Each structure stands twice: as structure tokens, then as C-alpha cells.
Amino acid sequence: MSFAPLPRLILEPAVRAALIEDLGVAGDITSATVIPADHRSRFSIAARQPGVIAGLAAAELAFELVEPRISVSRHVEDGTPVDAGDVIATIEGPSRGLLTAERTALNFLGHLSGIATATAGIVKAVAGTKASIVCTRKTTPGLRAFEKYAVRAGGGMNHRFALYDAVLIKDNHIAVAGSITEAIRRAKSGVGHMVKIEVEVDTLEQLREAMGEDVDAVLLDNMTPRKLAEAVGIVSGRAITEASGGITPATAAAIAASGVDLLSVGWITHSAPTLDLGLDAA
């Protein structure tokens, strides 16, 4: 799968903030006192368990910002599946800088690779269906662009990035507006023609009401596969259908088989385990 890298303009503020958090006002007092200033090392980053890699640019930038003389050689690219023991990258340069940046680099790389790995697992579960896996706004504050990038590296797709790029009318919006119909009509009168409108529904009756207003997408919340199939029939290709609510690798195949277009999965960003990676002397 082809996916665009994150630009440095997005990467650098977050990586720099993470380094500042770790270094504080005194810097790495351990490396400064234990390691001679002129010492150089060569290390490798290797996988300690199978997974999919994401976040190499962030890891590289952590080393560069600490010590520009450090060089990083990739052995794989983001989106690559790896096995335990596979070498991901080799790092060479002043030892103090290598050890100072190590944890920040591995934090980004392990976290984002964990998301890519979790995404790849559920993407595999729906293989053979037309459904795609999409993430949500349930992301770590400040790291949304990173985490949504990792989803793409794992073979998934992104839902809306934030509140500003699409309308998603949920149950509380409907409660305040008074009805699905009124909420949709207000949204249509308030946004431009380029903005998509999606409505969350819990029942087939709500779905029929939403479809009467010509929406772009419907979020079918916590429906069984059987009810999802009925919903797909009601929509009949007139809008994108998206299933959400407690979707796991064990349930994803049956949900995808209902004919929905998208499976919306929040835990791939908010609860994916970190991929275990290590930095060791090469």
C-alpha cells in the first residue's frame, strides 16, 4: 500500500517536545558522566516480536535533534512486516547522543509500530470482503497525525481527522436538535458543498429517516451482522455504510460480510500494545 510520509513540519514539534520532556534543564546526566565525549558506537534497532513497522522518521529525527552527527540506515520501510530478530535500522555516531535519544526514538517507533501491527491484524481479518478498516478520533492528544499515519502504514484508512473536516451527527446532536431530520437540515444549511455529512443511527427506523435527507454516509452503531445486512439493503448504495461499536479481530469478519463499506475501530489507536523493539550494540 502506498501512503505519504508525515512532513517534518508535523514531526518536529512533537519529537522536540518529547526530547525536552526527557532532557529537562540538566540533560542526560548519566551519559554525560559515564560516556567519554569522543566515544563512538554502532547500534541496531531490532524487533523482539513480529509486527509491522511505523514511525521510522520520528525515531530518526530524535537522534538527529540530539546529535546531528548520528547517521541512521534503514533496513526496512514503514509498512513492512517483520519477524522477531529482524534488524530494522542501524545507528552510528557519538555514543552520548545515541544513548540520550534512545528512549524517545524507541517510544515513537514502538508505539506507532504497535498501532500499525494492530491495524494489520484486523485488516487481515476482513480480507476477501469489500470492507475497509478506519480509525477514529480516539487518539493520544498531540499525536493524532502520528497515530493516523500508523494506521495507514498498517493497511487501514483514516476517518475524519478532527471536528473541522467533516460533519458527524451523533446521538447527542440529534437530542439537542430534536430529530435526525432537523439535525441534517441544519448541517446542510451551515456547511459548504465540499463537506461530507454522516449521521449515526442506532435503529433501522432512524436509518430510514436519515436516508430521506440524502446524507453522504451513515454510521451504524452497535448493530448485529444480521441487522447490518438489513441496513445495507435499505441504503442500497445511496450512501457509505460504516459499522462501529466493539469491533474486534474475532467479530470483524462477520461484520464485514454484512456488506458494509467501513468498519470503524477506535482501539487500534487508543489501546494498541506497543511493539517490543530494542536498541543493542551492533
Rank of each mutant, 00 (worst) to 15 (best):
Glu12Asp: 12
Arg42Lys: 14
Ala153Trp: 10
Ala58Asn: 02
Pro7Thr: 03
Ser271Phe: 00
Ser258Tyr: 01
Thr117Ser: 14
Ala217Leu: 04
Val191Leu: 07
His75Gln: 12
Leu277Phe: 00
Ala101Ile: 13
Ser31Ala: 15
Gly27Val: 10
Arg137Pro: 00
Ile234Cys: 10
Ser41Phe: 09
Ser271Glu: 09
Glu198Lys: 05
Glu182Asp: 13
Ser189Lys: 14
Cys135Ser: 13
Ser236Phe: 03
His75Asp: 06
Lys130Ala: 07
Ala54Ser: 14
His75Arg: 12
Cys135Glu: 14
Val260Cys: 07
Thr269Tyr: 01
Val260His: 09
Ala253Arg: 15
Ala253Val: 04
Tyr149Lys: 07
Ala166Met: 14
Ser258His: 09
Asn222Tyr: 03
Ala116Pro: 10
Asp78Lys: 00
Leu228Ala: 12
Gly93Ala: 03
Val191Gln: 03
Thr139Tyr: 00
Gly245His: 08
Glu21Ile: 08
Gly24Asn: 03
Thr224Lys: 07
Thr274Gln: 07
Leu168Thr: 14
Thr139Cys: 03
Gly237His: 07
Glu77His: 08
Val15Pro: 03
Ala177Gly: 14
Phe146Trp: 11
Val191Cys: 08
Arg69Gln: 12
Ile268Tyr: 00
Val201Asp: 06
Gly245Asn: 04
Thr139Arg: 13
Cys135Asn: 13
Glu182Val: 15
Leu277Ala: 01
Ala145Ile: 08
Leu163Ile: 15
Pro81Lys: 00
Leu112Val: 01
Thr251Pro: 06
Arg40Lys: 14
Leu219Tyr: 09
Lys170Gly: 14
Asp83Pro: 00
Leu220His: 06
Leu109Ser: 07
Ala250Leu: 08
Ser189Tyr: 01
Thr241Ile: 02
Gly190Gln: 13
Val265Cys: 05
Ser179Asp: 14
Val134Leu: 07
Asn222Met: 01
Ile174Trp: 12
Pro81Ile: 05
Ile115Phe: 05
Val76His: 03
Lys196Val: 07
Ser44Pro: 04
Thr241Glu: 04
Ala62His: 02
Ala37Ile: 13
Arg226Pro: 06
Asn222His: 10
Glu200Ala: 02
Ile255Ser: 03
Val126Thr: 06
Ala127Tyr: 09
Arg238Ile: 01
Val34Gly: 07
Gly237Leu: 05
Val151Tyr: 01
Phe161Thr: 15
Glu77Cys: 05
Leu228Glu: 15
Phe108Asn: 00
Leu19Asp: 06
Ala105Val: 08
Gly212Lys: 02
Leu168Glu: 13
Thr248Phe: 04
Leu219Trp: 08
Ala162Leu: 12
Ala162Gly: 15
Ile169Pro: 11
Asp171Thr: 15
Ala47Leu: 05
Asp221Val: 10
Asn107Ala: 06
Leu23Gly: 09
Ile197Ser: 03
Met211Gly: 11
Ser132Gly: 05
Ile268Lys: 00
Ser41Tyr: 08
Met223Asp: 11
Val76Leu: 01
Pro273Arg: 04
Gly97Trp: 01
Glu102Leu: 07
Ala183Gln: 10
Gly266Cys: 04
Ser71Lys: 07
Gly79Lys: 01
